[in-house]
């Protein structure tokens, strides 16, 4: 099944991704093939039962909520390109 252009455009919005015209054509073809493969699962006749998932492995053993020393600000900012003691971003409010 060929995926429609508007579907891919919608997915690009959700994914925050852009393609140029050629890239869009290519990815449409690839996504059509991939979704054909995914469609095979529709033949499978069973419904998800969310009550069965809880007992797989117990992961409710969370740690105590105790304040701890955090990372130094300088170290955390060292991976950002523009810093002035904070993360610099383009103007958000016009």
């Amino acid at each position: 099944m060929a995926v429609e252009l508007k579907t891919i455009q919608h997915l690009c919005e959700l994914s925050k991704l852009d393609y140029d015209e050629d890239g869009m054509k290519k990815v449409m073809g690839e996504m059509s093939d991939i979704i054909d493969l995914m469609d095979e699962i529709k033949e499978f006749d069973l419904t998800y039962d969310d009550t069965k998932d809880g007992n797989e492995i117990r992961f409710d053993d969370t740690r105590e909520d105790v304040p701890e020393e955090s990372f130094p600000t300088e170290k955390l900012l060292s991976n950002a390109e523009n810093t002035d003691g904070c993360y610099v971003v383009p103007k958000v409010v016009e």
Binding site: H10, L14, S15, V27, M31, I34, L46
Partner: peptide, 22 residues
């Protein structure tokens, strides 16, 4: 893109929940 397709409105039950059933 595929992940957002599986999770997006209208496809979630047909794909993602089906995958969880499997």
């Amino acid at each position: 893109l595929l992940g957002n397709y599986a999770l997006s409105s209208g496809y979630y039950d047909a794909y993602y929940k089906k995958a969880l059933a499997l």
